[in-house]
Design a protein around this nucleic acid. Structure first.
Ligand SMILES: [Mn+2]
Ligand SMILES: [Mn+2]
Length: 571
DNA sequence: GTTGGGATTG
DNA sequence: GAATGTGTGTCTCAATCCCAACTT
DNA sequence: TGACACACATTCAA
């Protein structure tokens, strides 16, 4: 099955970087001055210097210790360093204290007289760093660091062109989470992608300041994530000042709003209600609208005014109106219900559309709930309650799959494979996509409505050959909907034998209605009896409770097959 | 000495 | 008990290297 | 590097 790994060229990383450059050629004239200059400088470098620079860019952080630079594939380090230094793509200096302390190893630290003399030899590294950072804060920290570095006898280098790499990656991949390693993983055959036709015509950005903004937003998001990760005090109001103004370019505006929503969330934790409201007001995401209403509700509790009450009524009605699935409706409904007593004294008669009619609660599962006690044998069989329950049902003679979302999502992905990867305008910008650009927006259906309807008609007529053909022909190819390691042949065989055409049709329709939402919350286990009949089981161990989207999936599935909520505990 | 997490590499 | 908010682990691409905890 | 599901804590409204 597994074929031998292809060998990569000796300079594969440089080739990949040059591919990144070549593929973003049409944007080069738009580059901001700094990145344009650095790109030009890169092109004039010797191969050794280019190699070293790309090696360093591929690593984490901007600071490197010269003594730790060892590359067999780069002839001589010294001239390459001198060249990069000459072009100011890499500069020498002493890093900030935290980075310095992080990169100097513990044995090295303990040997330094400045530390040895302070009597800190026995501490673990994290505590040592804490102590040094704290004690340096007030006294002469620069002097201390310089002295320590002199004792260490080390030279440090700092990358000056990480922004260039970020910009190239941003333009090539169109997102912040794919990078140079994607090329390697693909060339080695570890990830294989559908051979869709790329759309060369659509250009995401037209102006230099759009590129600058894209880069700024990416760096600000990085910075915010980093602050969050380090768990140090946040100032969302101050951070907001650094964000760009609302953007015309839709992609940029989406990213800006995502960051603004994060700031709003952090403002809530600091009880900065007005600022949180101001943040959420700028965001279009449904969840931002939800936060908006929650904050208004909170404000109404603290300082009841007619203005806030009116805003909340508007917000709640909008929230209800834009709820695109039952779980969202449930959220809007609950929020409205809890707001009503707060609104009553301030509004003549608040008309909350979310309360106009009763909702079916997610946990309304009449006749779909069971209890199960498992004994020590099953506890020993596996660590997770789902696996233990699977073992139990296997002992009952079922064929059991712990596949959660992989089964129904997989059916969706296989049934619509060719449509998902059809060359719609603007859908595919590079060869490493698991889905078209608009997979999770309304335009996915709209742009492909004819093909989808035609396929649905065929599915309803009992067509399963297309699913099998895609399963075989596309085996192993990346698809956001298909998890190949969970959607195995035995599972698909059992499922397609058990499922009615109407069921498959309705599942796909449901997923199409709100693909982002309905792709999660599907039951833990799929069971198939020896006669081939299927059952769905959502397992709930002690201390876990049903979430809304899980409950609504059980309600939906229960109209076709047994779909049960199993409360499992141990005797 | 071993192990385990993170960084690096292909 | 329902409804919220928040933290954690698991997927990870796989083999290797480095370093910092540990004696499992 | 998120998305997802679970685990756990806290706060509510009857
Ligand atoms: Mn589950
Ligand atoms: Mn479960």
């Amino acid at each position: 099955m597994a074929s031998a790994r292809p060998e990569l060229a000796d300079r594969y990383y440089l080739d990949n970087f040059e591919l990144l450059i070549a593929s973003t050629r049409r944007y080069h004239p738009l580059f901001p001055a700094e990145q344009a200059q650095q790109l030009a400088q890169f092109q004039t470098l010797s191969e050794a210097a280019q190699r070293l620079l790309v090696r360093l860019l591929g690593r984490k952080g901007a600071w490197f210790r010269q003594s730790k630079l060892r590359y067999n594939d780069i002839n001589d380090m010294a001239p390459a360093l001198a060249e990069l230094s000459e072009q100011q793509l890499l500069v020498s200096g002493v890093p900030p204290r935290d980075i310095w302390l992080q990169q100097v190893t513990l044995p090295e630290l303990k040997q330094l007289p400045v530390i040895n003399d302070a009597g800190l030899q026995r501490l673990p590294k994290a505590a040592l760093i804490q102590t040094l950072l704290a004690s340096d804060a007030d006294c002469d920290s620069d002097g201390w660091l310089l002295q320590a570095n002199q004792q260490l006898d080390e030279r440090w280098w700092q990358l000056q062109c990480q922004g260039l790499l970020q910009l190239l990656q941003l333009l090539y991949f169109g997102n912040r989470n794919q990078d140079l390693t994607q090329f390697v993983v693909s060339e080695l055959g570890l990830q294989r992608f559908e051979q869709y036709r790329l759309d060369a015509s659509t250009q995401s950005f037209q102006q230099t300041d759009e590129l600058q903004t894209a880069l700024n937003l990416a760096q600000l998001a990085d910075e915010w994530d980093e602050l969050l990760r380090q768990k140090l005090p946040l100032d969302p109001v101050d951070f907001y000042q650094r964000l760009p103004k609302p953007q015309v370019q839709p992609q940029l505006e989406r990213r800006r709003q995502r960051l603004v929503a994060h700031l709003g969330r952090s403002a809530e934790r600091l009880n900065l209600w007005e600022f949180a409201v101001a943040c959420y007001q700028q965001c279009q995401a449904w969840t931002a609208n939800e936060r908006y209403c929650r904050v208004l509700q909170q404000q109404l509790k603290l300082t009841p005014t007619a203005v806030i009450a009116e805003q909340l009524v508007q917000g709640l009605n909008q929230l209800w109106f834009s709820a695109s699935n039952e779980a969202a409706q449930q959220v809007a409904h609950r929020l409205a219900k809890r707001s009503l007593p707060l609104l009553a004294p301030l509004c003549a008669e608040p008309t909350l559309t979310a309360l106009a009619r009763p909702l079916v609660a997610a946990n309304h599962l009449a006749g779909q709930q069971q209890s199960l006690q498992l004994n020590a044998d099953f506890i020993a069989a596996a660590p997770r309650v789902e696996q233990r329950t699977a073992t139990y049902f296997e002992a009952q003679g079922y064929q059991v799959f712990f596949c959660e979302n992989a089964l129904l999502n997989g059916l969706f992905g296989l049934a619509l494979w060719d449509i998902i990867f059809a060359p719609v305008a603007g859908a595919f910008h590079h060869p490493y996509q698991r889905a078209p650009q608009d997979m999770y927006s309304a335009s996915f259906y709209e742009q492909r409505a004819d093909a989808i309807e035609q396929r649905l008609t065929a599915i309803l007529a009992g067509e399963t050959a297309i699913i099998w053909r895609h399963f075989t022909e596309k085996q192993g190819l990346q698809n956001d909907w298909v998890n190949w390691s969970l959607l195995t042949e035995p599972l698909l065989t059992a499922a397609l034998a058990a499922f009615s055409p109407q069921f498959i049709y309705d599942v796909i329709r449901r997923l199409l209605k709100d693909p982002k939402h309905y792709r999660s919350g599907q039951p833990d286990l799929a069971l198939f009896s020896s006669e081939g009949a299927c059952r769905f089981i959502e397992v709930k161990g002690p201390g876990d409770s049903l979430s809304d989207h899980q409950g609504y999936w059980l309600q939906f599935l229960g109209r076709y097959y047994p779909a049960e909520l199993y409360f499992v505990d141990y005797v």
